[in-house]
Structure formats: structure tokens, C-alpha cells
């Protein structure tokens, strides 16, 4: 496997990458023509000159910036919360011994297999009892902790911190909290960054739960705002050019984040995989 790859490998990989990029390009093509042109055969293959025009209509029709702010806020809080709780619990599971830790960890892992998103019936009811329906709080609450987060941090910390280090800290008379703070947190930092990034992206792309809890409310996330773009200015008719322009606009923030942090994300996914 040490042979230098030939043209075939580069060719196939390029084809795969082109395939990955094409839908975004297509979205831009359709988002940059008029709505009449968007459904006219033969379909356009190159971008037209109406993207800014369509984008302006997107901004007219939905409160894009407020939806963007909500998405950032909700994803950010979710990421911070997941990282906080997962690091604490993951450290405990990985490095400290306590009665029932095995059972508890097995339980957490097992719940990863249960589609709790199917549990929206009681959730809606519960949130309505709390008068939370249609609020940002209601959107973010379910994303405050994840089983995966704990699992991920535990796997990472298992190897990342030598036991001797913790022992040394103890011998020095450090309290558990201090040990956690001075030994575990610095060691966990790379994993924390990756988990934060990952959680941020996951929450950002959520659709069903925000739709369920927010529809009919003036609070929207980017994903649910997209759903609202299906309204044309005069009549309930889909305008594909508008829809694609909006889709692209809603994707751009995450795309920028990806360009900035893709390297870490790749490393994180691969690291998690080997340990998992």
C-alpha cells in the first residue's frame, strides 16, 4: 500500500468529490435563475444572473437574520452544554471508580440505539405544560446532553490521561475537583473542541424537532425558515428558484465553519472511530 497512487485513484477520487459538490452547484444554478426558468426544459446548466434578486426575496420573505441568530444561539448553547456535562461525566467514567459505573455506562450506550426522537408526543405535552412551546428554550432543551457525548469523552480520556498523573495529583493533595481542572480538562481540550464542533453541526441541522415545536411561532431556526420559503408572495405556490437560493444561503454559514475547522473535524471523526 505504499505505492504512489496512479491516475486512476486520483480520477476516481475527483469524480467522488465532484459528485459531492454537484448538488450545491445545482442549488446555486437553480437559485440564480428566474422561477420560470427554473422549471423550463431544457434546464439551465450554468448559473444565471438572478441570485442576488432571489436572495433579496428570501430576505423579504423570512427573517433570515433572526433565524440565523437563533440557529447560532441554539447550536452554541447545545454545544457548550454537551461539552460541559460530557467532560465531567466522561472523566468520571473513564478515570474514576464508583459503584454502578459499568451498568450506567452500558445503559447510556444502549440508549444510543433507541430512537428517542419518536418520543415527541410526551415532549410536546410536557413543554406545553411548561408554556414553552414556540420558544428557543424548548428547541434547545432536548439537545443539552447526549449519550454520544459522554461515550465520546470517556473513550478519549481513557487513553489521554495516564493514571499516574491522577495519582500524582492525589499524592500532592489535590482535591478531585482540582485534579479534574488541572489534569483532565487540559488533556481533554482537543476532544472537547471536536465534540463542540460536532454537536454544533448536529443541532444546527436538526429539522423535525424545531419544526414540531416552532411551527406557527415567530421564532424560527434556519431549517424551519426554509420550510416557510415555500410560500410565494401571492398564493401558496412553491417557487423553486427562491427555495434553492434560500437553501444555499442557509448552508453558507455552516460551509464557512467547515472551511475554517474541517481539518479538526476530520481528525476528530477519525479519532473517535478508532477508539469507538
Amino acid at each position: 500500500m505504499s505505492r504512489r497512487p496512479g491516475f486512476l485513484v486520483y480520477g476516481l477520487l475527483s469524480a467522488f468529490v465532484l459528485g459531492s459538490t454537484f448538488p450545491l452547484y445545482w442549488s446555486f444554478v437553480i437559485g440564480s435563475v428566474t422561477k420560470e426558468r427554473a422549471i423550463q426544459s431544457p434546464l439551465p446548466l450554468y448559473p444565471g444572473g438572478y441570485f442576488l434578486d432571489n436572495a433579496r426575496r428570501v430576505f423579504d420573505q423570512i427573517d433570515f437574520w433572526s433565524a440565523l441568530a437563533n440557529s447560532v444561539l441554539i447550536s452554541g448553547i447545545s454545544a457548550a452544554s454537551v461539552v460541559f456535562f460530557s467532560t465531567l461525566a466522561g472523566y468520571s467514567f473513564a478515570k474514576l471508580r464508583f459503584r454502578g459505573s459499568n451498568v450506567a455506562m452500558a445503559f447510556v450506550v444502549a440508549t444510543m440505539a433507541v430512537p428517542t426522537q419518536l418520543a415527541f408526543v410526551p415532549l410536546l405535552k410536557t413543554f406545553s405544560n411548561l408554556d414553552l412551546t414556540g420558544t428557543r428554550t424548548a428547541v434547545v432543551l432536548p439537545f443539552l446532553v447526549t449519550a454520544f457525548g459522554v461515550f465520546f469523552m470517556r473513550q478519549y480520556l481513557l487513553d489521554a490521561i495516564p493514571d499516574e498523573l491522577i495519582e500524582a495529583a492525589r499524592v500532592d493533595g489535590c482535591s478531585q475537583l482540582r485534579t479534574f481542572w488541572t489534569v483532565a480538562v487540559p488533556a481533554a481540550r482537543p476532544a472537547m473542541a471536536i465534540l463542540a464542533l460536532f454537536t454544533f453541526m448536529q443541532t444546527w441541522t436538526e429539522f423535525m424537532w424545531p419544526l414540531l415545536i416552532l411551527q406557527g411561532s415567530d421564532v424560527q431556526t434556519l431549517q424551519t425558515a426554509l420550510d416557510q420559503l415555500k410560500i410565494a408572495p401571492a398564493g401558496g405556490i412553491a417557487d423553486i428558484a427562491l427555495l434553492q437560493a434560500g437553501t444555499l444561503l442557509a448552508t453558507i454559514p455552516l460551509l464557512l465553519l467547515f472551511i475554517a475547522t474541517g481539518r479538526q473535524l476530520v481528525a476528530g471523526i477519525m479519532q473517535g472511530a478508532v477508539k469507538g
Binding site: S2, R4, L13, S20, P23, L24, Q244, G262, V266
Partner: peptide
């Protein structure tokens, strides 16, 4: 898993669709 030129770039490229939300992918 071969000694590619621009390894990180390739890896990032294959991960690109991951930033497209399911709702956006469904619309496209």
C-alpha cells in the same frame, strides 16, 4: 489510504456534504 498528494484536502472534500442539512439536501 494511499500516499496521496494533498491528503487533508481530499479528506475534507469527501466530508463536505456533511455540512448540508437534511432539510437542505432534501430540497436540493
Amino acid at each position: 489510504d494511499t500516499p496521496l498528494r494533498g491528503r487533508t484536502w481530499w479528506r475534507m472534500s469527501v466530508l463536505l456534504p456533511f455540512v448540508v442539512a437534511p432539510a437542505a439536501a432534501a430540497l436540493i
